[in-house]
Design a binder for these strands. Structure first.
Lengths: 207, 207
DNA sequence: GTCTATATATAGATAGAC
DNA sequence: GTCTATCTATATATAGAC
């Protein structure tokens, strides 16, 4: 128990700092958010932040990693569960979309902060973000490849581009929902998104 | 010629400041970007910025309006042109997607800065951004409604949610392209996106 | 491990010369 | 209309007490 897990004392303080930072940075952006604000919201002094993290930037980078891992894990879990019950690759995409929507609904601030930085090169944490995006995209790619191999999807599908687009569709759709259509139930949003993922927007189409 | 158009002397200075601010804010974010940096890149002194704009925030808000108007205009123009040549609503969506991709490819920095702020409430310029998003979404909604009226799209489509999702798909897809698959030609990206807009991802589906 | 100072730098904004 | 000089506030980060 010497590692910095959530069980240790140090882990608890770090967890509170993560949660405080997520909310503040999501609302104000990284640079507008001061270390003092983060410390105050977490109920500790500023010096404690610098004891636990080397700098403001380092806190943010570790926060990104800490928050992104569960997202990718949820997507993978959803796909695995769908395949386990004998579902198709298209059904797996639906399940992943639902899992993605649920994650964003549960952690809208974390997602906002992520998206605000994801497509910006030239920032110190961009390589870390690119890697995290790559993991999530990789999960989607596997499902697409399986669908192509099973003859379920067209072989001409560009897996790399499509995975990024699908991921973008779910995340952007989820944030648009949370920001401009709050209160709408997840089922309605999922229903609006599925045609985009499965090909049923055009009436009469679809498998 | 007393208005602040691009033809006037004042308009020229403001235009240079816009362009400088777009690049810098896209890379660094609003708060990390200093007025001094913007002035330097535009080739003027800091005082000149404050003569032309009341504050840093005001410069940014006017920049958002200034940059978003052409985007919505391009989407509307693409849809109009497609309908004018007798195209379907689905074809209009394709044309809008292409117009959107082309706009983002031409102005990636502007789009980055836009997306980074779009889904954040609690910022002073959020109402301005929401309004601009509403205009663009409105253009998409009109096309969807026309498609439903013509029996081309399913009547159960939730126009409001779908418009936001479609817009998000194009913008997110375009930024993902610019950031993680640069060099790919626009045709390939458009081809990867169209199945999501028209319903052809699933093999054998589609109208 | 956490807190209370404090050092140092740099931001936004303004006043007044030209 | 643009520039230079400057005021004032506030940020990051550190040192040392507890």
């Amino acid at each position: 128990m010497t590692r910095t897990g959530t069980g240790t004392r140090r882990g608890a303080t770090r967890q509170r700092l993560y949660e405080a930072a997520i909310t503040l940075i999501a609302e104000q952006g990284f640079s507008s958010t001061t270390v003092e604000q983060i410390a105050e919201r977490a109920g500790v002094a500023k010096g404690t932040v610098y004891y636990n993290f080397g700098s403001k930037t380092e806190l943010f980078e570790e926060l990104l990693r800490h928050g992104a891992r569960p997202f990718t894990a949820e997507l993978a879990r959803a796909a695995r569960a769908e395949f386990a019950r004998g579902g198709s690759a298209a059904a797996a995409l639906d399940a992943m979309a639902r899992a993605g929507l649920a994650f964003v609904a549960a952690q809208p601030d974390l997602t906002r902060l992520f998206v605000a930085e994801l497509w910006r090169p030239n920032r110190t944490w961009h390589s870390a973000l690119a890697e995290l995006r790559g993991h999530a995209a990789g999960v989607v790619e596997e499902v697409l490849e399986r669908g192509v191999a099973d003859g379920e999807f067209d072989a001409s599908v560009d897996v790399g581009l499509a995975a990024g687009a699908l991921l973008g569709t779910v995340v952007a759709g989820a944030l648009d929902w949370q920001t401009f259509h709050p209160g709408r139930p997840i089922d309605e949003v999922h229903a609006a998104l599925c045609p985009l993922l499965r090909g049923r927007l055009a009436g009469g189409g679809g498998p």
